[in-house]
Design a protein around this nucleic acid. Structure first.
Length: 692
DNA sequence: GTTAGGG
DNA sequence: CCCTAAC
């Protein structure tokens, strides 16, 4: 079942170079590679299938015992999804050990939490390890992933950092139930204080009352988890470094599968490299370890995509597996004499259970009820019957935090700092952001349907994230309108687009103005805004959170000597935090004109020059953008007008595009005997002028 | 940091 | 637009 579904989805959307890639020319022929990957993943498929089957059986048995079958009535789809999740989790755990990329996955069903608990309570026998019920499974996984701030299992315990609060053996939470897979992962991990994860631990004897769980997710501790995993590598690479050690602890958000992950990696290294260090260092720079960043990006970008990401994650898994053998580590970062802790909780998004049948996730408490139309709800019932949409939020994405503390700080203070930070985030105003297909949905007044969150819609690309609860969002400084060709003869110069401070749904059908405006228009029309624009305020703003709309929740202020300074990583990872792509900025005719002209003169191999010449003031247009645009222009020009989309580009320009394209194709983008191509005489003239 | 291409 | 390999 699982297998089938997965295949249906396919997962070749992106390639994950696990190993040094072959030359571009070779890579181009992707067909082969794909098949290879398929095979490689095959094993996992089987594993998944088996796991799925086991789970299935377990589930059924469990449900038969439980007073109320948890997922019993679940629609096939629902079951599949869940199973898939669990399977994934399972696999994750299995493959995780030793992997350079630790990942976390928590197949929890928020909405079903209550059920789990009741089930457990009512049926003590479920505790039996021999029986792994679905809920059991989830529970376990939850334990490690959720509460865990996992320290790796390896020697140098000395440098071992327990960034987390009290060291509660996982058993405490998991109630001594650790199964192989989970155990490895959770084994010696230190649990974050349970405060962070209420609920979710069915086994905890004195679990928090249901009332606790009935809180809105956003307020429920269970919604946020931080798990810090120590990077296995550290131990491998740096066997011991007890004294004068700089610990670079930073999180690589490439550790989980997207749903529930808030993990952090720890790695330690000494400032003074030893021989081994050097080598390792080098190794890290090799292509092998490049896997990491790749994964990271991959993972991150998928985070918001819910279910869909799952299928793609197969590759991820695969990669991770290989990682164990090939690349034991990732990047390290040294920060002066202090060690830096940066954990970027990249939690995931939720997972949606789209079940036509009712009662599959029966929620006894009021979790849902509290949903004030906001995404904090676990489930949202909208409209009668079919049109209702049910949500099961696995977890929220938490903004990245960057903690910097002096070397002299105690571990305890570090713990405290981290805890405070988290607490501040949870306690301090946070709001929930809804992300659909990687874009933030801002219009709170829109209905789910209007927004595209419908029963049968892209629920798989829906995500929720926590954001600073700063009401006033500083108006992003509109990209300064760029004048094309600021210099000389520019017949296409356009008046600077007005910043459009207040973007009301501009109905101006077609605004000839440059991208800036158009984009804005776009935004307003869709009521969706992509990535945060460059905040007016920069790093400074971080403290008050304004500016960087979603990221940088930096509740903690500067610091006293020993206090720990928390600094948002905003600058560097501003965008990657959420991994949102830049807002789309369709090229205006004027821009196209400028581009064409520049290319006619400069050719197609000097994008940087093109950029400087025609788009020097257009900060949002990189030379890569220009190159890409040219690429599309060439394509556009070569297809029939009927197939073209977007703002029509004057045929005249397209003709010039083709001319220039063919011309430069033959002239190798540079030296060229003039007068060779008739149609471009004019161009030649220009070129000459330029070259002169 | 740029280019050139595939995704 | 993103992401990379290759320069």
């Amino acid at each position: 079942m699982v297998l089938k579904k997965r295949l249906d989805y396919g997962f070749h959307g992106y390639q994950i170079p696990v190993i040094p890639r072959a030359p571009r020319s070779v890579r181009r022929r992707g067909a082969h590679k794909k098949s290879v990957e398929d095979h490689q993943i095959c094993a996992f498929e089987l594993l998944a299938a088996v796991a799925g089957k086991l789970l299935q059986e377990s589930e059924s048995s469990a449900s038969s015992n439980a007073s109320e079958a948890k997922v019993q009535p679940c629609h096939m789809d629902g079951i599949k999804k869940e199973r898939s999740e669990e399977t994934k989790a399972f696999r994750t755990e299995c493959l995780d050990q030793g992997s350079c990329v630790e990942s976390t996955f928590i197949p929890e069903r928020v909405a079903g939490e209550q059920n789990f608990k009741s089930s457990v309570e009512d049926h003590p026998n479920l505790e039996n390890d021999s029986i792994i019920t679905s809920s059991d499974f989830s529970k376990k996984v939850d334990c490690d992933l959720k509460l865990g701030i996992c320290n790796n299992k390896t020697a140098d315990e000395d440098n071992h950092f327990n960034v987390a609060g009290g060291s509660h053996p996982s058993q405490n939470i998991c109630n001594g139930k650790t199964e192989t897979a989970a155990k490895r992962q959770v084994g010696d991990e230190t649990k974050w204080s349970q405060e962070l994860t209420v609920a979710n631990s069915p086994n905890v004897k004195h679990q928090v009352g249901k009332c606790m769980n009935s809180k809105t997710v956003i307020n429920s501790d269970s919604s946020v988890q931080l798990s810090l995993y120590r990077d296995p590598v550290s131990s491998v690479s740096f066997p011991k470094h007890r004294n004068n050690v700089n610990l670079g602890i930073r999180d690589d958000d490439d550790n989980s599968f997207g749903w529930n992950k808030l993990s952090t990696k720890f790695r330690a290294f000494r400032p003074q490299a030893r021989n081994g260090y050097r080598r390792i260092r080098k190794m890290l720079q090799s292509k092998y370890w490049r896997v990491a960043p790749k994964l990271r990006d991959y993972e991150v970008s998928n985070t918001n995509e819910g279910m869909r990401s799952f299928y793609r994650n197969r590759k991820f898994i695969h990669t991770r597996d290989r990682c164990q053998h090939e690349a034991p580590s990732k990047r390290r970062k040294l920060s002066g004499r202090r060690f830096v802790v940066a954990y970027d909780q990249e939690a995931s998004s939720e997972s949606i259970s789209n079940s036509p049948e009712k009662g599959e996730y029966r929620r006894s408490d009021g979790v849902l009820d509290k949903a004030n139309g906001s995404s904090t709800s676990v489930k949202v019932h909208k409209k009668p019957k079919n049109s209702s949409v049910k949500f099961s939020i696995k977890s929220f994405k938490v903004p990245e935090l960057y903690i910097e503390v002096p070397e002299t700080a105690t571990v305890g203070s570090l713990k405290t700092t981290v805890l405070e930070t988290v607490t501040a985030i949870l306690g301090g105003g946070v709001r929930v952001g809804v992300v659909l297909q990687g874009k933030k949905v801002r219009d709170d007044n829109r209905t789910l349907q209007q927004t595209g969150i419908s029963h049968g819609g892209n629920l798989d690309s829906l995500g929720f994230i926590l954001e600073p609860n700063f009401t006033q969002v500083i108006e992003p400084s509109k990209d300064s309108p760029q004048q094309l060709q600021h210099d000389t003869d520019e017949k296409f110069i356009r008046p600077p687009a007005s910043p459009l401070q207040n973007s009301g749904p501009s109905n101006a059908a077609i605004d000839p103005l440059p991208a800036t405006k158009m984009e804005k228009q776009n935004v307003s029309n869709h009521e969706i805004i992509l990535s945060p624009k460059t905040p007016v305020i920069d790093s400074k703003a971080v403290v008050d959170g304004a500016g960087t709309e979603s990221k940088a929740l930096v509740p903690v202020a500067p610091v006293g000597a020993e206090a720990l300074a928390m600094v948002p990583v905003s600058q560097k990872m501003k965008r990657s935090e959420v991994s949102q792509r830049r807002t789309r900025r369709p090229f205006s005719v004027g821009e196209v004109e400028a581009l064409v002209e520049a290319v006619e003169i400069l050719g197609t191999g000097r994008w940087r020059d093109v950029k400087m010449r025609a788009f020097d003031n257009a900060d949002h247009r990189t030379y890569v953008d220009l190159k890409d645009k040219w690429k599309t222009l060439v394509h556009t020009a070569s297809i029939s007008p009927q197939q073209r989309r977007g703002e029509p580009v004057p045929q005249e320009l397209l003709d010039r595009v083709l001319s220039a394209h063919s011309y430069w194709s033959q002239h190798q983008s540079k030296q060229h005997g003039k007068h060779q191509i008739e149609p471009l005489q004019i161009m030649d003239a220009q070129a000459e002028k330029y070259e002169a």
